[in-house]
Computed example of a mutant assay.
Amino acid sequence: MIIRHMEPEDCGAIISAAPDWWGSTYASDMFSSWYIHHFRETCLVAEQGGDMIGFLMGFLSQTVPDEAYIRIVMVDPVARGQGVGRALYGNFFDRAAASGRTTIRCVTVPRKKDSIAFHTKLGFSIEPQEQELEGVPVCLNYDGRGGNRVMFKKLLVR
């Protein structure tokens, strides 16, 4: 497996893979070539044998200079459990640390128990919230459209 920067030319493959890899319809303007162009250094593709098997899209916070944010990660269902997600996250952590970032943030939806378990295994802590759903702290209306999210934080060790 190799991990490389995402390129604007990867946009079509990502848009094609996203619904199958996500398990439902997933549409985002993040998958556009302009997003990839502007955040190339923190958008990553995992490949095996020349085929994309996963990707991560993140960015370095412009507002909080010691933080980086992972917006979305998807792994081909056939490649899950093979360390692809862990490798993508590790590469992102290294890039964030090299840019002076000490904190990584990301979110998932409360119903994705596998995602919650994955993030906690990687050393993320769940951010406390005033509300809980099914025993998990959640930020209600995180996206301004009624979507609830579990918010994670990881401190990078230097």
Score class of each variant (00 low, 15 high):
Ile116Trp: 06
Arg80Cys: 01
Glu41Asn: 13
Phe118Trp: 08
Asp94His: 11
Ala79Pro: 07
Met151Asn: 07
Ser33Met: 09
Ala17His: 15
Leu88Tyr: 02
Ser99Val: 10
Leu155Trp: 10
Phe39Lys: 07
Thr108Phe: 01
Ala68Trp: 02
Lys154Tyr: 02
Asp20Asn: 09
Asp10Met: 00
Arg145Lys: 08
Arg149Ile: 01
Pro8Ala: 06
Gly135Trp: 04
Ile126Ser: 03
Ser125Ile: 15
Leu156Ser: 05
Ala17Ile: 03
Ser61Cys: 02
His119Asp: 12
His37Tyr: 10
Ser28Phe: 00
Phe31Trp: 12
Pro128Asp: 11
Arg111Leu: 02
Glu127Gln: 14
Thr42Arg: 09
Ser28Leu: 05
Leu56Lys: 01
Ser33Ala: 15
Phe124Gln: 00
His37Pro: 04
Arg4Ser: 13
Ile104Ser: 01
Asp66Arg: 05
Ala97Asn: 05
Val109Met: 11
Gly100Tyr: 07
Gly23Asn: 04
Asn141Ser: 01
Val138His: 04
Asn148Cys: 11
Asp76Asn: 12
Glu41Phe: 06
Arg111Gln: 08
Met57Gln: 12
Met74Pro: 10
Met1Tyr: 01
Ile116Glu: 10
Ser24Trp: 10
Leu133Gln: 13
Gly85Asn: 09
Val109Thr: 08
Asp143Ala: 14
Val84Cys: 00
Pro128Val: 06
Lys154His: 07
Thr42Phe: 12
Gly83Thr: 05
Arg158Cys: 13
Ile3Leu: 05
Trp21Tyr: 04
Leu156Thr: 00
Pro137Trp: 04
Pro77Glu: 00
Phe39Cys: 12
Val84His: 03
Gly147Thr: 11
Asn141Tyr: 00
Thr63Val: 13
Arg158Asn: 14
Tyr89Gln: 02
Pro77Leu: 04
Gln82Leu: 15
Asp10Asn: 02
Phe124Trp: 01
Ala79Ile: 03
Ser99Trp: 07
Ala96Val: 07
Pro137Leu: 01
Thr102Gly: 11
Gly83Asn: 04
His5Val: 04
